[in-house]
Structure formats: C-alpha cells, structure tokens
Design a binder for these strands. Sequence first.
DNA 1: ACGATTTTGTTCTCCCGTTCACAAACTCCT
DNA 2: AGGAGTTTGTGAACGGGAGAACAAAATCGT
Lengths: 228, 228
Amino acid sequence: MSARTSDSSREIPEATVARLPIYLRALTTLVEQGTATCSSEELAAAAGVNSAKLRKDLSYLGSYGTRGVGYDVDYLRYQIAREIGVTQDWPVVIVGIGNLGHALANFSGFRSRGFRVVALLDADPERRGERVAGVDVRDFADLDAIVREHGVAIGVIATPASAAQDVADRMVEAGISSILNFAPTVISVADGVDVRKVDLSIELQILAYHEQRKQAEATTRVASEVTA
Amino acid sequence: MSARTSDSSREIPEATVARLPIYLRALTTLVEQGTATCSSEELAAAAGVNSAKLRKDLSYLGSYGTRGVGYDVDYLRYQIAREIGVTQDWPVVIVGIGNLGHALANFSGFRSRGFRVVALLDADPERRGERVAGVDVRDFADLDAIVREHGVAIGVIATPASAAQDVADRMVEAGISSILNFAPTVISVADGVDVRKVDLSIELQILAYHEQRKQAEATTRVASEVTA
DNA sequence: ACGATTTTGTTCTCCCGTTCACAAACTCCT
DNA sequence: AGGAGTTTGTGAACGGGAGAACAAAATCGT
C-alpha cells in the first residue's frame, strides 16, 4: 500500500461538489423513468447545466462513461452517491423547533437522501414533549449525550439569529463538525468545522436587485423612445 | 443627457451583489447598537469577509467612506439598501402552503426587509379559507388577478417538485419575472426571468461530502500512525 | 502650518472555474 | 474488416473574482 494512492487523492473542486447533488437528483429521476443510459447532453439538460461542464465534473470522479454510448444511469448514480457519501446514513440533529424547524423535521428529502433526524432540540420548555415527524422534542441541554450516543456529525440551526452563535458553539463543543445554518446571522466556528448557510431574505434581496435593474432599464428604454 | 452616463451604468459583479445583503444586515445590527461609524475592518469582521474584499465591493457603489475615518453606518446602510432596491416595497406571492409555505409566510425577515406577502396560494381546496400570518390562502387560479392587482414581480415556489415547473410557467405567464424556488427540482424559464433556488438536501449533501473526507482523512492518519 | 497616523479606494497579480475544441474510443452498418 | 458516425474525456484559452499591496486623502497633534 504505497504506489496505489489511487482513490481518495483526487481533489474535487468545490464548484463541482456543489453540482454533484443536482446530477444525483437528475439521475434518480431518470432511473424512476426507466431510462437505462443517457448522454452527457441529456443529463446536462436535466440538470440545467452546460454539457462540457457536466463532463468535466464527472471526469473528476473517474471515467464512468463509454465513448460513443453515454453513461449507465444506475451505475453513474451509485458512483456519485458514493462520492458524496450518501450511501451511508448520516444522523442529524435539528435545533430550534419553530416554524422552520417543523418544516425541516417534516421534510421528506432528508430521509430519502441518507439523512436521519435523530433528535429535535429546543431551549423553550414549552416545546418539550411535543412530537414532530415521529421524533420527540428534547432539551437543548441533551445535545452532548445525543451527539455521543448517535455519533452525530451534522447539526442544523433553525433558531432565531440571537441564539445561533451560542448554539453553534455548543454544537462544536459536543463534537459536531458540519453545520447548516438557517439563522440570519454570521456564525464563526473553529477551523475544521464546515458551515453552510441558507438565508431566505438574502435570496429575495438578490432577486430584488436584479428586478430593480430590469425595471429601471425598461423605464429608461421608454424614456429614450419618447425623446427619440 | 449623453455624457452623464454617471449613475446606473456601473455594472456590479454578481459575487458582490450576493454579499451586499450581508453587509446590510451587519450595518443594521451596528445601527441598533448605536454605532455611528465603523472601519472596513470592523464591518468586514461583522460580515465574515476579508476587509479588502469589502472595500472593493463597496467601491462599486461609489465612494461612501472617508479616508482616515471609516464609514458612516447609517448613511452606508441607506446607500446599500437603495442599491439593492429594498427601500421600496416588494409585493410577493407564495405558492404552496405546506410546512415550508407556512414557515415562509410567518418569516418575519420578509416584512422587515421590504418584502410584503400579498397572497398565499395553493391548488388544494382543503387549504383554502385557512388564514396564515394574517393572509388568507386562496386559489392558485387567482394568480393572474393578484399579480395584476398588486403589481407583483417576485414569486416564491414552495410546492412539491412535481408541481414546480407548472407553477413557474403560470407565474411567468402572469407577469412575474423573479422566482425563488424551494422545490427540489430544476425549473426552466424564459430569458429575462431570474430564478434562484434554495435546496435543503443539496446543502446537506455538500456538508456530507466534506464530512466524509474529514473522517476518511482521520482514519488514514490513524492507520499510518499504526504502521509507522 | 505641517508631519505623523489612520483608513479608504484602486491597481496588480494569482487562481479557480467555465467554455471551446478536438483527439480518443466505442458502436453500428455495410 | 473497415469506415462512418457518436460521444466521452481533456488540453488550452479565457474571464472573473480574491487578496496583497500601495497611493491618495482625511484627521490629529504639535
């Protein structure tokens, strides 16, 4: 075991990693439709990307296609799933069971993609005993025990912004090393811990910016037509 | 009106646009704390970015800082808000009032940032008459009338994946030109329509990939320590 | 009034990601 | 068997964003 650095040494670019789940979903749809093989062109169309980009992305994983033929849908699907790591089961805890926490707990896309919600936590005693999506809401203080028991590596923060940093600190302390943050605030964590954030209002604001530009351009065009 | 292309001709890079809302939020926090001025270093820290990047981002909007001093928090906040377009009021419709739709309708970050939910729509007759966050759930067929009446430009899709493309088509037809898509599927729209997507399971999968890598590296390290 | 100090705005360089274009490799048909 | 037709995988060119580094401009102290 020395010359064969074969497998895990390939460094996959971040932009590619972000697209692999999209390809995975497109392939799953194709499998359900009974499609056995597909070309890069077809798969790219289903994923909404350029076919050259798709091929380059896939090339980072290996050579799983056949020239002149295309890709075996089921085989490629498995390879991508394995590369992402969703062939194994990932226990997840959700902290903050408000409106959003409820929605997340009930989200079927978790379960179907290798994620299992092992605990719902909330600091508010009022919420305890409540049962959401078949899981009891428990005390946030139980975090340590739950992480240890289930070997949880991924935590989801669905609390108000004011609580997010504290929750993140406690998560990292408990041993969680990947955090998905829905709270509208920047959280800082130690090196080695990954944080991704999802912010509804930021997405809307980006749309608003472009919308404003579109509308401004439209009125400018009208104005110049009038003066012309 | 020819030499003075002054104002709206500045093309702001997409990466910068995506960060402006973060700066806006950080500035709002500073205002609430009663801070009058701040340096690029402080603001960058609050926003979780590099200070050089922050300054370059702000330079696309104009010269709103004072060398040797920093930025007037309230003034800069207003300038960014105006640039993004959140000084005006944006009417928004949400389609699909399931768990996620509920959470979105109740999300306070909408209202506080210039977005007003003018209608909640669902195709399921069961849901009608229900009242969420002070807004009645109405028939999806009313979309055209509502868009016309309120001048809605932004639509939010919170339906299952199977319905998303159809909803998007109807939205575009009704005159909506910016869509925020929460359904886990790729939707295609005409040119000139902006689509942004938020996908919970994709974010989790990206985290899973990195988590898997971290764990693989940890075991490799242990293995090599054993053989060493 | 003027130099020291602070902090912005901007230039320059590097790197990552996208896209084009084509060679390699496979199938199919004759 | 061999040529025509497909489709993948990749080398190379290109564009945009990130960060370092510095010049310009403001304040402050003497």
